[in-house]
């Protein structure tokens, strides 16, 4: 158990390397976002494109990872798949929150309002956010590992239905939110100038790298938590493994 916590552990070093790569990609994405041209209608506010859109796509990817690994768990009963699924969904909730927040700020600047319950894109995204918050709550409310893994896997699969609903809401309903610029029915005809595509791609790469890093860290934490839970419940009376921190007192 202590081996997993040392800095020399190979998974730890891989995670650190992923973190460094993510940090570099964030720096590149940030630079390209700042140096991109302003947009004709929206001016400088359009730079939120480089946070809001990658964040939304990264949330989709995270929840998609949660879906695939949840299915993997149900097929193979792999404990690792369960942990990865929960970690991906947890980070997906974070990116959904970032999407909602940046969307509200952008909406205030450009449309003239923070939020509107009449808009299908806003409402479907909020519903998705609260659904997956419910997933996280469910996960914390079940102590039995196998019961928790099965229920969460099914919920993680079912909940993904909302991702296409969120994405297509702007096409299915008449919304204040504009339609998709790139991932649209006529896929070849992007309505976005090439000058925005490169910074958007760089920002997306950075967000995906951050997602990978955060999921890796979250899985490690879950593993350590599970190890602690095992050691305290099987071999020792409650509280026996807890000792005052040494070396911290000055």
């Amino acid at each position: 158990m202590t081996r997993g916590a040392t800095a020399l552990d190979p998974t730890s070093r891989a995670t650190t390397a992923a973190g460094v790569v993510a940090l570099c990609l964030v720096a590149v994405g940030l630079y390209m976002s700042v140096t991109a041209p302003a947009e004709e209608t929206q001016g400088e506010a359009a730079r939120l494109l480089f946070v809001h859109v990658p964040s939304a796509i990264t949330a989709y990817v995270a929840l998609g990872t949660g879906l695939v690994t949840a299915a993997w768990y149900l097929i193979r009963r792999s404990a690792a798949a369960d942990l990865v699924s929960a970690a991906a969904i947890e980070v997906g909730v974070l990116f959904t929150a970032i999407t909602l927040l940046t969307g509200m700020i952008w909406g205030r600047f450009v449309w003239g309002l923070w939020w509107d319950w009449g808009d299908a894109r806003m409402v479907s995204t909020a519903v998705m956010f609260f659904f997956y918050l419910g997933y996280l709550a469910l996960r914390r409310s079940i102590t039995d590992h196998r019961v928790r893994a099965v229920r969460c896997a099914v919920l993680g699969i079912v909940g993904f239905v909302q991702v296409p609903i969120v994405h297509y809401s702007v096409l299915w309903f008449r919304t204040l939110h504009q339609g998709p610029s790139i991932i649209r029915p006529d896929l070849g005809n992007s309505t976005m100038d090439a000058a925005f595509i490169a910074p958007l791609g760089a920002a997306l790469a950075a967000f995906i790298a951050v997602l990978a890093y955060l999921v890796a860290v979250r899985v490690r934490i879950a593993r350590l938590e599970a190890a602690v839970a095992r050691s305290t419940t099987t071999s020792q009376p409650v509280g026996a493994s807890v000792s005052p921190p040494s070396g911290l007192s000055v």
Partner: peptide, 26 residues
């Protein structure tokens, strides 16, 4: 109450930053 409902076009501002009136929505 007046809200802006811009479309999904993203056009880069050119060197001078001049504004050209967009014609129609797709």
């Amino acid at each position: 109450t007046l809200l802006i409902n811009h479309d999904e076009q993203y056009r880069a501002v050119d060197g001078e930053g001049t504004y050209q009136v967009p014609t129609t929505r797709p």
